[in-house]
Amino acid sequence: MRAFSLFIFLFLYLPVAVIVVFSFNAAPNMSAFTGLSLRWYAKAFSNPLAIAALTNSIVIALCSAVVSTAIGSAVAIGLMGTSRTTRIVVQSLMMLGLAVPGIVIGLASLVFFSAAFSGAEQAVAMLAGWEQAAKLFSFGRPTVIAAHSLFCTALVVEVISLRLRQLNPSWLEASNDLYAGRGETLWRVVVPFIVPAMVAGGLLSFVLSFDEFIIAFFVSGTKPTLPVYMFASVKRGATPELNAIATSMLTISILVSVVAFSFLRRGQARA
């Protein structure tokens, strides 16, 4: 059993380890390892296109995390007072955002935004008589943020709902006995209790959005995210510079995930 588990781990993570090792390769190709060097990291971080794509990915991931955390928290709190059947139905519908293949969401987002932009352009041109209305509506950061927030919200709802199941009902009863209204109970009891889950859900949403490729490929327009930029670059051939970029992305994702799970564990310990 241990040997089988070791084989699974090697199968999953050995290719990643190869990318990390060869990102420090001094040779300009990936056929042989000739020594350690940071030249490819220096080249990657001096590439204006890569830096622009990295900045775009970070901004989109931050905005998606904020939007999904706000919406997901509201949905999870709103489900507290509903019946078990209602919670199951709503959470199942929310989880469809994670269950549906990314290419389906990406294509659906592309069709939706194209139709919405076309209608908005025609309305602006008709009402304002401005023929250049097409410049107001285009694919870019807002479309990627909207599409990423769709499946990130489902994750936030699930994380906060798990946290709310640990909430002691006697705390709410005590708050009512002390003549606190619903708003005050929400602000003084519920929100402080779910803050660790909100932070963890936001951080996990950041990681999902930062690493996501398929949806961004459809709706990023002329401002590609870092995964889209890497996909376009690798078609010209894999280089150590791409290994350096991939290792940097992996490091960011791991660090953010570790922080997210530490918040979840801290919240569970307090509970």
Rank of each mutant, 00 (worst) to 15 (best):
T34M: 09
V199K: 03
M94R: 01
E173R: 00
V159E: 02
E184V: 11
V90L: 03
L250M: 14
S233H: 09
T34Q: 14
V59N: 07
A197G: 12
A52S: 14
G267H: 03
L12M: 05
A44E: 11
E241S: 06
L204Q: 00
R84Y: 02
E131V: 12
F24K: 07
E158W: 08
L98C: 11
M95F: 02
P48I: 06
A174D: 12
S149Q: 02
S57G: 05
T225C: 04
S83M: 09
S257I: 03
G97A: 09
Q122Y: 11
Y179N: 13
I88D: 13
G97W: 02
F137G: 07
G221Q: 09
F193C: 05
A216F: 03
A180W: 14
R182E: 11
G129S: 11
V159M: 05
A116F: 12
F7V: 03
P224I: 06
A146Y: 04
V67T: 01
N29E: 14
L208Y: 10
A123I: 14
P192H: 10
P196E: 10
S23L: 08
L155D: 00
W40T: 02
L264C: 13
I8S: 06
L172Y: 05
S46N: 14
A180T: 13
V67G: 02
T185K: 11
G129K: 09
R236Q: 12
I88G: 10
G78Q: 10
E158Q: 12
L62A: 10
I8Y: 10
T82R: 12
M126D: 12
P142I: 01
S170T: 09
V75E: 01
A115P: 00
N25H: 10
A76S: 15
L155M: 15
L208D: 06
I160H: 00
T85I: 09
K135W: 06
S114T: 04
S220E: 10
A26Y: 13
P192A: 12
S170A: 11
A216W: 01
V124I: 15
V258R: 10
V16L: 15
S118P: 04
G202V: 02
A70L: 01
L162K: 10
A133P: 07
I145N: 01
F151D: 01
N243V: 00
S248D: 12
S138T: 11
A246G: 14
V124P: 11
A44H: 08
S257F: 04
K223H: 11
S233I: 06
G35I: 11
E212I: 00
A3T: 07
G201N: 00
Q268H: 08
N29L: 06
N47D: 15
A26R: 12
S209A: 07
Q91F: 02
S57A: 05
L203E: 04
I103V: 14
T251M: 07
A244P: 04
S253E: 06
I254L: 14
M198Y: 00
A44N: 07
I194L: 08
I254E: 06
R163A: 12
S68G: 01
M80A: 13
A238M: 14
I105A: 03
A200E: 03
E121Y: 10
G221M: 05
A200F: 02
L208Q: 13
I19V: 15
S262A: 15
C63I: 12
L36G: 08
A260F: 10
G140R: 02
F11H: 00
W40I: 04
V207Y: 01
L164G: 10
V199T: 05
F231H: 07
G119L: 05
V67M: 00
A116N: 05
